[in-house]
Amino acid sequence: MSSKISDIVTNPTTDGRSGDVVSTQKDKGWFYTDTVKEHFFHPKNFMDNEATYGEAAMGMVGSPACGDAMKIWIKVDPATERITDLKWKTFGCGSAIASTSMMSVMVTENGGVTLDEARKFRPQHIMERLGGLPARKVHCSVLGDKALRSAINDWYRKAGKTDKIEVEQGRIIDKVLKITDHDIEEAVLDGAYTLEKVQAKTKVGIGDPCCIPEVENLIRFYKEKYFGAE
């Protein structure tokens, strides 16, 4: 059975509003959906013993200073280029752990997705399967797919197929103003170290306030990357 991205979301819930964020105004019940809780308390496919994965392709994103870091190992069938196994480790909050766990299931279920299909994974696919995440937790789920793409590049590198390595494209952060992470990176390089200063340069988040937590995370990430930890 082949699995396309459109097939991957097998169990959408109305609660999650098709992977949309859950309003922070929600003031009843538990903070996370039952699916998020299940993956947080009983994580699937997490890396138990790194020694046996020494040869596997690996990708990592995030940093402990940012509050989220994810590391992903994949095993791939060279003939079909399907991901046969994915293991992960995550430093982060409940939704970060649950998102990585859910992604590991989505990538490996039904015989595994191909590397090309895996590259099309986006946070909203994971969020949809999780039944949605609280608005300010969305940033926690955006690292898993990046780590996966980084591991895929590593696999191609190890397989000698360097032509298949893809540079991470700019990702749109502010859907309204179409501001990408590269724009934020440029702003930080220009000396804008705070949200206010980055907003003064890019207007990010003015029309799409939902993205502000992620912008703050990116500012700290780039600041640390280029100017070192505080």
């Binding site: 308390f41 509050g67 989220d68 430093f91 982060g92 909050c93 409940g94 970060a96 752990i97």
Partner: peptide, 14 residues
């Protein structure tokens, strides 16, 4: 070190 506070709060909550 090496863990995130919210994750620990949720495990304690359980």
């Amino acid at each position: 070190l090496d863990i995130e506070g919210e994750a620990a709060v949720l495990y304690l909550d359980a």
